[in-house]
C-alpha cells in the first residue's frame, strides 16, 4: 500500500513552491509550538489552587501589543513577496515556449499540438523546454492542474487563459480538473507524459494523421470564404490579416488593442465588438458555426501569415489606413 507524503517534483516551479512551503511550515511550527507551550505551561503553573483566589489584574502592555503585531506582520510580508515572485514568473510565459492549445469540456481535455497532433486526456511534452498552454472551455469552468508541476489555471468559457511550465524530469504525471464542473468532475483526469527531447521527436513524427494546426486553419479559412473580404493585399472590404498577429491595432473608437489570441477569437465570434479604424462593421458572426478547435486553427493560420521580413518596422500608425472612412465614433460627440 502506497503512502506518499510529498508530491513528486517535476517542473522548474516545483522546487520554488516547495521551498516556500518549508518557510511557511517553519514559521507556522514556531508559532504553533510557542502558543501551545505557553498555554500548557501557564495553565499548569497558574492552576487554581483554592476557590477564592483573586489574581491581580494585568491590563495591557503597549510594547507587547506592538511587538506581536509588527513581528508577525514582517514575517508575513516575506510570505507575500516570495509567493508573489513565483506567481509573477508563472504568469509570464517565455517567448520561445512551445504552444499547445487546450479545449476543456464536460468531462474531457482536448489538446492540440502546433504540428497537428491531437490528444485526449493525455499530453506529451519534451523535458527542458517551456510549454505554454492556451486554454478555453466549451461549457462550465474547468481548471488545468498538474500537481507535480505545481501549476494550476482555471479554464473559462468565452475567453483564453494561459499557463506555462518546463518539465524537468521524464515521467508520467497526473492531470486533474480542479474546478468543480459537474457529474463526472472526478473523471476529468489525464496524464502528462514528459519525455526526453529525442523521444518526444519520435513520438511527434509517429502518427501525423492530421495536418498541422495552421494547415487545418487555412483549409477552414477557405471553406468559410474568409478570403473574399480579408484579401491579403488589403484591397478587400475587410482588413488584411497578413502580419496582423502581435501588432497593435487602432480601433474605430480611437483605442489601440494588441492583436493577440483573445482579440482574434473575439473578432471571429463577435466581430462587432471591436471595429478596426477605417472599416465598416460588415462581418457576420461565426458564433455557433466554428467550434472552439476551429477558432484555434484559424488563429494559428492567421499567425502563420506573418510577412517574411517587414514585421519589425510596423507601427500602430501604419495600420490606421484611412481615417476618413471612420463612420461612427461614439466617444467623440
Amino acid at each position: 500500500m502506497k503512502l506518499p507524503l510529498f508530491p513528486e517534483s517535476a517542473s522548474t516551479f516545483a522546487p520554488d513552491v516547495d521551498h516556500l512551503l518549508f518557510y511557511l511550515v517553519g514559521v507556522s511550527v514556531f508559532f504553533t509550538v510557542l502558543i501551545f507551550v505557553s498555554i500548557v505551561y501557564f495553565a499548569v503553573r497558574y492552576r487554581r489552587r483554592s476557590d477564592n483566589e483573586l489574581p491581580k489584574p494585568i491590563h495591557a502592555s503597549l510594547a507587547l501589543e506592538i511587538a506581536w503585531s509588527v513581528i508577525p506582520f514582517g514575517l508575513t510580508i516575506v510570505m507575500f513577496g516570495w509567493g508573489a515572485n513565483i506567481f509573477f514568473r508563472e504568469s509570464r510565459p517565455p517567448k520561445n515556449a512551445m504552444q499547445v492549445y487546450v479545449v476543456a469540456k464536460q468531462w474531457m481535455w482536448k489538446l492540440q499540438h502546433m504540428e497537428g497532433q491531437r490528444e485526449i486526456n493525455e499530453l506529451h511534452i519534451p523535458v527542458g523546454r517551456p510549454v505554454k498552454l492556451v486554454m478555453t472551455s466549451e461549457d462550465a469552468i474547468h481548471s488545468f492542474f498538474v500537481p507535480a508541476f505545481r501549476t494550476k489555471q482555471d479554464v473559462v468559457p468565452g475567453r483564453y487563459s494561459t499557463t506555462w511550465f518546463t518539465a524537468t524530469k521524464p515521467g508520467k504525471y497526473h492531470l486533474f480538473c480542479a474546478e468543480y464542473c459537474g457529474t463526472k468532475h472526478s473523471g476529468m483526469t489525464g496524464w502528462i507524459y514528459a519525455m526526453e527531447p529525442q523521444d518526444y521527436q519520435a513520438w511527434l513524427s509517429g502518427g501525423r494523421a492530421f495536418g498541422s494546426l495552421a494547415e487545418n486553419g487555412e483549409k477552414l479559412f477557405q471553406d468559410l470564404a474568409c478570403g473574399n473580404c480579408h484579401k491579403a493585399d488589403g484591397s478587400g472590404r475587410c482588413p488584411s490579416l497578413v502580419g496582423l498577429f502581435g501588432r497593435s491595432v487602432q480601433l474605430a473608437d480611437g483605442r489601440f488593442v494588441s492583436a493577440d489570441e483573445a482579440y482574434l477569437r473575439e473578432s471571429i465570434l463577435r466581430p462587432d465588438a471591436k471595429i478596426v479604424a477605417g472599416y465598416q462593421p460588415l462581418m457576420p458572426t461565426f458564433q455557433g458555426q466554428v467550434s472552439e478547435e476551429g477558432v484555434l486553427e484559424l488563429i494559428e493560420y492567421i499567425k502563420s501569415l506573418a510577412p517574411p521580413a517587414a514585421v519589425a518596422g510596423t507601427t500602430p500608425a501604419e495600420i490606421n489606413v484611412n481615417p476618413d472612412r471612420v463612420t461612427s465614433s461614439p466617444s467623440n460627440p
Binding site: V17, T32, T76, F80, G83, A84, I86, F87, A178
Partner: peptide
C-alpha cells in the same frame, strides 16, 4: 489561521487552491 497565511501566498495558492 496560520494555514490561511499559506493560501494567501500567491505562488503557493496556485498549487493548493481547490485541493
Amino acid at each position: 489561521g496560520l494555514t490561511g497565511l499559506f493560501v494567501a501566498s500567491l505562488g503557493f495558492d496556485v498549487h493548493v487552491t481547490d485541493t
